[in-house]
Nucleic acid binder design. Sequence first.
DNA 1: TCAAAAGTGTTGACATTACACCCATGT
DNA 2: ACATGGGTGTAATGTCAACACTTTTGA
Lengths: 244, 244
Amino acid sequence: MEAIISNISVDCVIFGFDNNTLQVLLTKRELKDRETGELLIADYTLQGHHILVGENIDDAAKRVLKDKTGLENIYLEQFQTFGDINRLRRPKDQLWLKTMYPMVSDHVVSVCYYSLVDSTKVNPDLQHPYSSWFPVDQLPELGFDHEEMISMALEYLRNKLWREPVGFELLPDKFTLSQLQSLYEAILNTEIDRRNFWKKVSQMKFVIPLDEKHKAGSRKKAQAFIFSKDVYERTRKDKLTLSY
Amino acid sequence: MEAIISNISVDCVIFGFDNNTLQVLLTKRELKDRETGELLIADYTLQGHHILVGENIDDAAKRVLKDKTGLENIYLEQFQTFGDINRLRRPKDQLWLKTMYPMVSDHVVSVCYYSLVDSTKVNPDLQHPYSSWFPVDQLPELGFDHEEMISMALEYLRNKLWREPVGFELLPDKFTLSQLQSLYEAILNTEIDRRNFWKKVSQMKFVIPLDEKHKAGSRKKAQAFIFSKDVYERTRKDKLTLSY
DNA sequence: TCAAAAGTGTTGACATTACACCCATGT
DNA sequence: ACATGGGTGTAATGTCAACACTTTTGA
């Protein structure tokens, strides 16, 4: 077992997309009284871990992700560091820490990342028996300050989606326009006109139509598309306007 | 002297606006050989400090700001945490740390903030004899990874300026439209048509014309404006579009 | 009187929005 | 045959970019 740095951790908000809903991967946290068997704590937390001695924080986040999803080389972005001295001070969190990690410092600063994964590639049940997906708008009870982390991650994701084509990270390599549209609708929590969305997307040179057709649960077969990061990088123009 | 947490620090990129230029406040770092008097290190760094035991990281940033500028309640935003194990590994930085702070950990994670100040309210020479303002596009040699921090802070500031009216933090309470315009031009590094800018700004209900006239170095007196945060908060509508 | 900055409107191009019908296919 | 989602065009509106002349006033 490698040595941890006890006052710095990383937490990962792992987003996936399924059933036309934006989901978050959470891990169950349970604590029973040793004698009575009474459930003292039963809630969920994000995936996180302390950083190791000699480990970059970005690498710590990648490690957590690999451990919990089995995935590597996925979209990962640091969005905020939580360093309030009271962030672990709720009684149930104190109870959890005292019981499970008695040696860990009382003031842990957590560097938070969000990552976007193609949820068809993750099988949380196999990877980690206590993990499961929850829709972002129907979260269970959460430990620590993880609810705040998720809502802040979502805010960052929304802002990012608005400016950069990160949504594709959440879809399989090949996708249809309606999948893409419902992804945008789910993340931005809005409705989009299908024809206008089509028009917008067809201007994006980096969304490339394939010859293939997809029978994505629909009656009529829909055209499949892929996202080309390469084309995106080459054709991006950093427009600046004055608009707020 | 209060106890510090040796592996966590905050660094502040303090932006000001003067001479129609976006400026950064930097502190001189000098190290001379004790015997020969030879200058071993002569460069600049950001303002930073380790967090104290029992101190929130946001409060640590406020403390650094207060110490270096004398100002309180100013715009401050956490933008990124630097946690690479090699970030302090350049020979001159190692020499500096070994000489000045021999007890400090080798792996310091730094939580970075940028702040926006009305530079007319700061007198860095009085506040701190080794501090001075530098235009962001004419930086001196910098210690540690502070050059990267500044360029990342600038990126975050640009994105923010695009979406929210933070620029006013850099101006005196009363300002003219040409001051505001040259602020936008300096930060976004672009030229803006004066008439279009005027049109845009006059739609912003939170930029409020005063009866006063200002003789801001110009021949003709210009109208003075103030920014109302209150009006902004009440009239903001979070528009979402699909545009990148 | 003139140089330098302030103040102001119009037009064309482009982007966004709203909206309705036909098509292909699996049931 | 029909229900479901796929595919497409047009008109109205709003926003952005380009552009030139007059006014004020300090030197």
